[in-house]
Amino acid sequence: MDKKPTLVTKGRYELKYRGNKCLNCDHPLDISDKYCPNCSQANSTKKLVLKDFFDEFFSNLINYDSKLLKTLYALLIKPGTITKDYINGKRVAYTNPFRFLLSLAFIYILMFTYDNNLYTWDDLGLKDRIEKTGPLSYSFNNGETPKDSTNIQKQTEEALNQLDSLDNLEKIPIPGIQSIDSLQSIIGQGIRAEAKKDSFMLANPRKYLESIQNKNAGGLGKRMEFFFTFLQKDSIKTFQEAQEKYGANTSWRNRIAFNGSKSSLKAMEQPGTYVNNTIGKLPLVIFFFLPIFTVFIWVVYIRKKYTYTDHLIFSFHNQSLLFILLILSLIIDTIFNTASMGIFFLIFSFYLYKSMRRFYGQGRVKTIVKYIFLNTMFAFLALFVIIVLFTGSIFTY
């Protein structure tokens, strides 16, 4: 006597709706096939109703939550174990490492940018910040363009006269400087040279720009200084205006210098917004950074029978744990008004050591040496990436 299938089914997956071939690819099916083994489409001939959509939504949600809980448990309680299970084929029970890390990174960045006070930096005016940090370009009569160098010379003489009160400088042995007069002469020459250059730029900007454009002699620094000065003076706002008023050519140097100067000025006017926008790019940067850092892990453990992808999954899992701890830190700091990030970094440091020992299976001494080396390389790479990110953001802000 044949036994009837004992599959637990409901909704459009009931046995009475099963077909003998896939409606998508025509692959032959048995009544016990809930899904087509060829294309994975559900084996059901039932017409869709609204209830089916809700049933599948909550079913998938519960299934994802189950994976999420198992992944969190394995990450928090068993360092290194989840990576071993995943690379050995036990993947159904866990969430995808790449997608899981990306989700955590976005959650952390959203929480961080929402809860910080960086936007208050925008309340400081550009003038206040220049007074605190020093002007980025030479100031002439509150921004007015001089017609001659009289004011420049006056400011230079005032600067030199201040040196007369520095009587004790003669007692300080400085190689190459015999007296206070020679020191005044050297400083005065530098001030006059800088003043002369700025006077020329402001008195005849078209001629000045032509001189640095001639045979591409002027680098990005000089061009950015020029565009920044006249953007700050509101004499130009677009690159087309720079072309019409000052004869800027359409070279790539000019365009990059103009855009970089304009973005720099905007970042100075809205530093909080600039920093927040730059931090918002970190999740994408992480996925360029980790594959590079994983090369060092692969080199350090080259004698182990792990592929580069295995090491990359190990990096993803550990970075995911770091974001979980940072999220917990933000929540605790928000509720109790504390600063707990340092404590969670210490927890992660110990966790990473245990994870390396358990996954790679080496002794304490070897693990500690490799731990120190890899963390040092991580710090250098992270610093380099942050510098590149914030510098590059200046040109795109």
Rank of each mutant, 00 (worst) to 15 (best):
S199C: 08
S199I: 04
F200L: 06
L202A: 01
L202C: 02
A203G: 09
N204G: 05
P205D: 02
P205C: 01
P205M: 01
R206T: 15
K207E: 15
Y208A: 02
L209F: 10
L209P: 06
E210P: 03
E210V: 01
E210S: 07
I212A: 02
N214G: 00
K215T: 12
K215W: 12
N216F: 14
G218H: 07
G218A: 06
G219E: 12
L220G: 05
L220H: 09
G221V: 11
G221W: 11
G221S: 10
K222V: 14
R223W: 13
R223T: 09
R223Y: 12
E225Y: 08
E225P: 07
E225C: 00
F226H: 06
F226D: 04
F226N: 03
F227A: 00
F228I: 02
F228E: 06
T229E: 12
F230G: 01
F230R: 01
Q232M: 09
Q232R: 13
Q232P: 11
K233P: 11
S235G: 02
S235Q: 15
I236N: 06
I236V: 13
T238L: 06
F239R: 00
F239S: 00
Q240F: 09
Q240H: 06
Q240A: 03
E241H: 01
E241Q: 07
E241S: 00
A242Q: 04
A242N: 04
A242M: 03
Q243R: 06
E244C: 00
E244I: 05
E244S: 00
E244V: 05
E244F: 10
K245F: 13
Y246M: 01
Y246P: 02
Y246A: 01
Y246N: 01
N249R: 00
N249Q: 08
N249E: 15
T250R: 05
T250I: 08
T250W: 09
T250V: 09
W252Y: 12
W252E: 10
W252T: 10
R253H: 14
R253W: 13
N254E: 10
N254C: 07
I256M: 08
I256A: 03
I256F: 09
I256P: 04
A257S: 14
F258W: 11
F258I: 07
F258V: 07
N259K: 10
N259I: 13
N259P: 11
K262D: 15
K262Y: 15
S263G: 12
S263P: 10
S264H: 12
S264R: 12
S264K: 10
L265P: 09
